[in-house]
């Protein structure tokens, strides 16, 4: 495990932000911290990246303790925070070379690295312009490039695509996938389920400062039930009829009945046969796999039972 956090607690004054968070991230994987606003995602990232001390609990990153060996940890990680951290009054080139120098790369190496990164993030044309003239997407790209100067072992990305347009978001996702294929470990936070679903090998869902669920996306999805067939009818009497036939509870939509399924064609045949024999006309059938949305809603909504079964 390249990142191991156990029993993290953090309070700001009387506000408890983290109440016992455990995280284990395997080397070379993408790990997503998913949760609503205020769940404690950023606080967790700040502790993992040595910026904040936990009140209780311990974290080791690449074998080093984040409190006692902060400098060693800082040598192998990089952080891309929620808001872009670049100097607006410096050019893209100057920003990158500065970080290279601060990572003690030596001047020629820092310059080579800056050139490579400018090419990789499609910023060569803008390299000698001050960053204040960059577009939002360009700033975010430079921001990520600055995090890669040191070729870190673990990259922490705090909501990397918040506020980006769809095409910049796709570019960012591609950049993240590239990093993973080169063996880098990535820890990211996100509010977007689609992002976690696409990128992450493992997801920890946190809510109210505690881990609400963890696992692969498939494991999380199976926690809220398996596949389902949604049957749409023309009339409510038909729905009632079918509900009695399959002994299934009615959902929120009065014209739709959801019944549990194993996803097989055979089951679908059987359902349609049963309906034909009973003389209930079905208008439309759709098969539904639970999404992370279902997981998210069912786990983060405290006083509501899972929306559908």
């Amino acid at each position: 495990m390249i990142v191991e956090a156990t029993g993290l607690h953090k309070a700001f004054g009387s506000t408890k932000v983290l109440e016992g968070v455990d995280l284990h991230v395997a080397e070379g994987t993408v790990f997503a911290l998913l949760g609503p606003n205020g769940a404690g995602k950023t606080t967790t990232i700040r502790i993992l990246t040595t910026l904040l001390r936990p009140d209780l609990g311990s974290v080791r990153v690449a074998g080093h303790d984040v409190v006692r060996e902060a400098t060693k940890v800082r040598g192998v990680i990089s952080l891309t925070g929620q808001s872009v951290a670049v100097d607006d009054q410096q050019t893209g080139w100057e920003n990158l070379v500065m970080i290279g120098r601060l990572m003690h790369l030596g001047r020629p190496a820092a310059r080579r690295r800056a050139t490579d990164l400018l090419e990789r993030f499609d910023l060569v044309d803008a390299m000698n312009r001050r960053v204040k003239t960059y577009s939002g997407g360009m700033r975010r790209r430079l921001d990520l490039a600055m995090s890669l100067v040191s070729q870190p072992k673990v990259i922490f990305l705090d909501e990397p695509t918040t506020g980006l347009d769809p095409s910049s978001r796709t570019t960012m996702w591609d950049a993240i996938k590239d990093l993973v294929s080169s063996g880098t470990t990535i820890v990211l936070t996100t509010q977007y389920l689609e992002e976690a679903d696409r990128l992450a090998d493992r997801i920890v869902l946190i809510n109210g400062g505690k881990v609400a669920a963890s696992g692969t996306t498939d494991e999380l999805k199976s926690q809220v039930g398996g596949d389902r067939l949604d049957l749409r009818f023309a009339a409510e009497t038909d729905v009632a009829h079918a509900a009695a036939l399959f002994d299934a509870p009615r959902g929120t939509d009065p014209l739709v009945l959801g019944i549990p399924s194993d996803g097989s064609a055979e089951h679908l045949h059987r359902v349609l046969d049963d309906l034909r024999i009973a003389g209930v006309p079905v208008v439309k059938v759709s098969s539904h796999r639970p999404t992370l949305d279902d997981v998210f809603l069912s786990l983060t909504t405290t006083d509501r039972t899972p929306a559908r079964v």
Partner: peptide
């Protein structure tokens, strides 16, 4: 007050 300070602080300097 900018996010630059977090970046600088997360460097081994």
């Amino acid at each position: 007050t900018s996010s630059m300070i977090d970046r600088l602080r997360s460097l081994p300097i």
